[in-house]
Simulated assay, not measured.
Amino acid sequence: HAMTTKPVLHGDNGSTLKATTVLAMLYWLGVKPSYSRPRVSDDNAYVESLFRTAKYRPEFPDKGFADLDEARAWASHFVRWYNHEHRHSGIRYVSPAQRHAGDDTAILAARHALYLQARERHPRRWSGVTRNWTPIAAVTLNPERDAVVKARSGCVDTQPLAA
């Protein structure tokens, strides 16, 4: 038989969504409340950052979407752009697809060489070192938790993560 699922209302851990009257209304409507945990992929900070990126895309419709199919089509194009074209600062301005394929190492090495050439040609424009183009060793949502887990398990991190 087909399993029915309740719609979910996801929010932060604020008092509004936890208020008894709101919870009673959600229960009455058949809506399951969901709460964020800090520094996980559906934490409000991450979701709001993603929403902001989406809303400020030039092709985002000012007046909303005509229907659900139009919204889904737009979201599909956005996800493709976000993963294959958008350069993310947290991974040294390569796309997630480039990072996932391992292409970031060659791209970042080429950028580093270009910066060194520019500094050599115009040394007065440079006050010190060039930008750090070393590949990011690991990407994590919970660096604090990961450090605690490593410390308790006796693992030693021989290469510190770049900020």
Rank of each mutant, 00 (worst) to 15 (best):
T158P: 00
N142V: 11
G102R: 12
D62V: 10
F60A: 01
R87K: 11
Y82G: 00
T158L: 08
P61I: 03
V148Y: 03
K63V: 00
S49R: 15
A97I: 05
L161P: 09
D69S: 08
K63L: 00
Q159P: 01
G102E: 04
Y82P: 00
T21K: 14
A2K: 15
A2W: 06
A19N: 14
H122T: 06
C155G: 00
K32E: 12
A151W: 14
H100Q: 14
N44C: 03
H77P: 00
Y56N: 05
R57E: 02
L114V: 05
S15F: 14
G64R: 12
P135D: 05
D12R: 11
H88Y: 08
R124M: 05
R145N: 11
H84L: 03
V156D: 05
L23K: 12
A163P: 04
H100N: 13
S153I: 03
G102M: 04
P96M: 09
Y56W: 13
H77Q: 13
M25A: 12
G154T: 02
A66K: 12
V148Q: 12
R87P: 00
R80H: 11
H10M: 08
L9R: 07
K18E: 11
E85S: 07
E59Y: 03
A137M: 12
A101Q: 12
A110V: 03
K18V: 02
Y115C: 02
H84R: 13
Y82A: 02
P160C: 07
A118M: 14
K150I: 01
V129F: 09
K55Q: 11
A54V: 10
T4N: 11
E59C: 01
T140N: 09
A106Q: 15
M3L: 11
Y46W: 13
A118I: 05
R152W: 03
K150H: 08
P123K: 13
G14K: 06
Y35G: 00
V8F: 01
T16F: 00
H1P: 10
L141W: 05
A110Y: 05
D103N: 10
V129W: 15
K55S: 02
G102A: 01
D43M: 07
S34D: 08
W74C: 01
L108M: 06
W28T: 06
G128N: 14
G14E: 13
V31C: 05
K18I: 06
A66W: 08
A24M: 01
G11K: 07
W81I: 02
L26K: 13
V139T: 15
H122S: 03
E48I: 07
S15D: 09
D67H: 12
S95M: 06
A109M: 08
D43F: 05
V31H: 08
A54Q: 11
R87L: 07
R111Y: 06
N44W: 14
P143T: 10
A24Q: 13
T105M: 01
E59M: 03
A118Y: 04
G30P: 01
A137Q: 14
R121W: 09
H112K: 13
A97M: 14
P96K: 15
P135L: 04
L26Y: 09
E120D: 10
R125N: 07
R52W: 10
N142G: 02
A163V: 12
A138N: 13
P61G: 04
A138E: 14
A162E: 15
G90R: 15
Y56M: 04
E48D: 09
K63T: 04
P135T: 15
D157I: 08
R145M: 09
R92Y: 10
A106H: 10
W133E: 07
H122I: 01
V139Q: 13
D104M: 05
L26G: 06
R121I: 04
